[in-house]
Design a protein around this nucleic acid. Structure first.
Lengths: 202, 202, 202, 202
DNA sequence: GATGAATGAGTATTCATTCAT
DNA sequence: TATGAATGAATACTCATTCAT
């Protein structure tokens, strides 16, 4: 409860995310995390009951702010420009992913980890943050559609997924390319504009 | 190099992919693979020098067919319908991902694994199959554009990425949802149709 | 299943009992057991699923022969002499204890270990071998009493416990004395004769 | 050395004995002791230099009163009844055992622990309390024998051990039975009466 | 005196790999 | 070629002990 304890806890969360990003889940050991945090291995267990609990905490605490911003998206309907609001959302999705992508990746093939990660999630129905943007995005589009700021002839659910897929695929493939040593990223913004033209009138 | 040896080798590759899909990379052990293949653990090392080598072989041999089909896509320009050809491509991307997604996921945060996996790839410049469809897809769209079967006012690179992003994000998020125990998948086809409307004339 | 495997298994059981006797339960580590058996630590787990399972196997296999002999005691009624038969029993109790005393000692204060040890026991109702002699001993005395070879005015249950207590206390206290570096053991035989005088007529 | 310190010290000794009885030696941790005493782990080391030192103190201080009472037994010769005096002794042996049995059990197979526990004992020649009753008991019996209150034809050393063995075996086997989840205890009193009949005249 | 945070050596167990048969 | 037994380094986690406050 002391400030020292809090600092150590944050260092451990940082270290967990860092090592996970650098080494991947299979190579992320408690020893490595402790080394990166500059503490002893035993210290991990003063703050978290298990390695999985550490990851769950990192996952939750790192994504909760972004996720809450995302769920507030529909409230923006009618304000600013549709293009601007959507670009903002896309930026949020990128941020979430940048923080927790390796955890997502690991969880996608590890039911046990997935369960640990997504239990006690701040999201409704124990959801996982990756799917979360879809529904608020669709609701936002519907609200704008009602206001006439989004084309009336589109299915908002389909459009939402097409929009969501771009930053998602962009972040993921860029990450893989970077890890594999490639440098030539993908032009997310251009693709986004391409889809936006089908969304906003004119 | 007898036929029996070949059969065992194929069984091991099958088993590796199967167990990988079920357990995820971090939990896929040689013991489990051997059991799934119906051979002893020692046998793995008669066919592959290491566990990583086994995965590399599985990765390469399982994706090469699909990838070659994908690279042949531009040749289809002018045949069939654009929509049909694109749907075919999407199906291919789904197939590749279904086989090797956990390896992709693991490799995306593990430079060492990525290097091991993507070296000796049949793809140009040691590339990884995931990005591979992008360039043929763009070339296909350009070819169709020249034939007037794709709208002239679109940037084919941007459209290619928007199209590619849908099956990629669909497969990945569906996989994560399934692992996390959710059942409500995403409507890839609808989203795809939505984008296609911006691609094909009318 | 090979003969080599069987030899290793026996070496591990021997080593487990040896180290337990020398070091006590709290200091009996898998590393120490492996060293004493002349194998690697990993080998333990090819033969037993856990350390507790190893102890359970040692416990069961080491005490089953003696225990079966003890349960056969009532059949001796009417043969030989009562004194001779009882001395034989006492010797058996000593043997059992000599084999498994440290396990008994550890189990007496560790419910988890006790559960592990006494489950799947070859003894009726998952019993533990230490109490086992009591009932056959009482039945033997009753049988001899019916034959007039044991005094009619004694309660066989009480006599059985008084007889049983002597080797039990003798073995246990001698063991403690020896471990503590004392050499002067206790005269079990004399105490036994003292009690026997109240059991056999004259 | 204030009174507060003394209280803490006693709480720690109490806690040590309590946890020891509940968990057994191998599972008794300093954390658990501290929790039971309502103090922090660090506090243990203000009062005792090590965990073993704490146990040694508990062992010594908890058994010294009973043991001194026991050593005073010969003085009772001629007072009360022999049966009453012996029953009193038996009760004392039970009390000692109830406090320190798990330590005895652990020490019986751990020379290092035995050395630590029995050094600095208040008992003659660094003895351990368990054997201690034997000699006073024998001397008591001899004294009563001289007074004609104990049968003249018995060897007091043998009788002493036969008497001692009953509460010792009783406490130990009852403890094991209880730990293993059995409820049917042993009838110590009956067995004791049986032996007493050979000790007191008539 | 007391605390709670930190430590690091040690624990049971796993697992990719080797090797005798 | 295939096996299964053996290996030992590595892993997550525990715990007696130390130390700054």
């Amino acid at each position: 409860m002391g400030v020292r304890s809090d600092i150590t806890r944050q260092q451990l969360l940082d270290a967990a995310v860092t090592v996970l990003s650098e080494r991947g889940y299979a190579r992320t050991t408690t020893k490595e995390i402790a080394r990166a945090a500059g503490v002893s291995e035993g210290t991990i267990y003063r703050h978290f009951t298990s390695k999985q609990e550490l990851f769950r905490a990192a996952f939750t605490e790192r994504s909760v702010a972004d996720v809450q911003a995302i769920t507030g998206l529909p409230d923006l309907a009618g304000t600013g420009t549709v293009r601007g609001n959507l670009l903002l959302l896309i930026r949020m999705i990128e941020d979430v992913e940048a923080n927790v992508a390796p955890l997502h990746a690991a969880a996608s093939s590890d039911a046990e980890l997935a369960a640990a990660l997504f239990s006690e999630s701040p999201l409704a129905d124990g959801g996982n943050p990756i799917m979360t943007p879809l529904e608020p995005l669709a609701r936002y589009l519907a609200a704008e559609q009602a206001l006439g700021r989004v084309r009336g002839d589109i299915d908002v659910a389909h459009a939402a997924f097409a929009l969501f897929a771009i930053p998602f695929a962009g972040v993921t493939t860029n990450r893989l390319a970077r890890t594999a040593g490639k440098r030539n990223g993908v032009d997310m913004a251009g693709a986004l504009e391409f889809v936006l033209r089908s969304v906003v009138p004119e």
